[in-house]
Structure formats: C-alpha cells, structure tokens
C-alpha cells in the first residue's frame, strides 16, 4: 500500500502482455481497461453485475469487470475481447456469431463471446441447457438468444 492517498502502481497481464498502470483505489477493472488502457471493446452497462457486457476472463474464469476493484487484479492475467481475434484473423466463435446472425447492435457481443469461450474451454460439446446456463450472466436485448445459442452450438461445424 502506498502511504500517499493518491494512486498505486498496478501490475498485471492483459491479453498476454505485462501492463503497469497507476490506479486510484476506487477504480474498477472496467474503468482501468476502458479509460487507462483504452481497451474499449469491454463495454460499460449497468455497472452492477446484471448485464454482463463488461465480462472479461481473469485467470481462466469470467468475471464482471465492473465488480472487481482494479487493485484486486494485481498479478492476474486478464483476457479481453481485444485478445480473442484480430480483424483479419477472427476467432472461430466470432466467425460463427457472424455466420449465424448472432450480432445485431453488438453491445452484448464482446461479453457474450468471452462467456462462450470460457464455457467451451471447460466443456467442448455443451448441451442446450449448459449453453443457456453458461451465458445466463449476459443479457442481449436484440437477438432473443436463439441465434447466439446456434452460433455457440455450431462453432466447429
């Protein structure tokens, strides 16, 4: 802990790269990603854990970045949507989302993709029920989930 009331140095890994950033103790991981590191693919929505648009993967598990204090991520590995694929080399899930029309306004998509990725890493062939449970922390106001579920089911087909 720094004695001064100001900022503290935070060291973590984001998308495989070591990152050092000065943060205020009251900042959330979401704020650091979006405003300090300019990784704005992680979206800001309800900021109370309900919508899931801020979902990132921390040490292999999905979390709501709005519900983690930045300083709680010291030494942790964070994976954001920017680490999933690039414009010319999309992740299979991203391709499948496009193919199945699972993206409308796109606001929920980054978080949804990361929840889907975490799900498939633990369970390569999830049932419909397991997919629904896996993305139950991510709201989509546009698609009604059917196309998103199709996209996840058919990612390797």
């Amino acid at each position: 802990m720094s004695k001064e009331p100001g900022k503290t140095l935070l060291k973590m890994k984001v998308n495989g790269k070591a990152v050092e950033v000065m943060v205020n103790p009251t900042w959330t991981l979401l704020r650091v990603l979006r405003e300090e590191l300019r990784l704005t693919g992680t979206k800001k929505g309800c900021e109370q854990g309900d919508c899931g648009v801020c979902t990132v993967i921390m040490d292999g598990r999905t979390v709501n970045a709005c519900l983690v204090l930045a300083l709680q991520t010291e030494s942790k590995e964070i994976e954001t949507i920017e680490g999933l694929g690039t414009a010319d080399q999309l992740h299979p899930l991203q391709k499948s989302f496009i193919k199945h029309g699972a993206v409308q306004c796109g606001f929920c998509t980054p978080g949804m993709l990361l929840s889907a990725k975490a799900l498939l890493e633990k369970n390569a062939d999830p049932t419909l029920e397991e997919i629904k449970r896996g993305i139950s922390g991510n709201l989509c106001r546009c698609t009604g989930f059917v196309k998103i579920i199709k996209a996840i089911q058919n990612v390797h087909r």
């Binding site: 854990g49 999905t62 519900l67 139950s136 922390g137 991510n138």
Partner: peptide, 9 residues
Amino acid sequence: VGGPQIRNR
C-alpha cells in the same frame, strides 16, 4: 447463485 460471472467471484 447469479450467473457464472457472479459464481466465479
């Protein structure tokens, strides 16, 4: 409890 993100934390 919650969704996966809440159960993970």
